[in-house]
Amino acid sequence: MSIVYPVTDVTASPGPTPWQTVGPFFHLALPYSAGSEVAGTSVPGRIRLAGTVYDGSGEPALDALVEIWQPDQAGTFVTTQGIYEKPDGFRGFGRSATDSGEYEFFTVKPGPVPTIDGRCQAPHIAMSVFARGLLRRVVTRIYFPEDSLDMDPLLDSLPQARRSSLVATPAPDGYRFDVYLQGDQETVFLDVGGR
């Protein structure tokens, strides 16, 4: 098989820069040693959050990159530090590659934050998954099983059969959250605006 696309000559139009896949070779630049440490060892209430990213054949994707962003236990966002400095504190951001079969974070359970128009939501973490073969990221949310999930406007809008894909399961040291890119158990992925 060979591929030939028509070549035309137009001028770029103004507008957002399009997405392109992260490809298979991001490891030389993106993962960093403390990337799993969303909360450092000194942070009370530290838990482990881990999971596997599965493709449509049920195989683990070993070349995916997972990022999370969340507030602290009080629902407050970190606004004063970056991702590389101060690894002992809570920084709200984590980045973990799946080359060992799982992504892994050490973090705290987030506190609740409302929607921008003031409605209550159950506590959740925002997650991005990037991988070879994904031309742009997929975005999802991680919720927690012990919370009042019926009052959450996103979960309430989903068919019951799909809601559970956004809810972590308890694990001895924290929670497990697997991502299914495709198939019967496909995770609910979100359109959060942007690209």
Binding site: Q70, P110, V113, I116, A126, R141, P153, V192
Partner: peptide, 10 residues
């Protein structure tokens, strides 16, 4: 894709 209510986390 599902559009969530605009939230502060995202």
């Amino acid at each position: 894709l599902v559009m969530p209510p605009p939230g502060y986390v995202e």
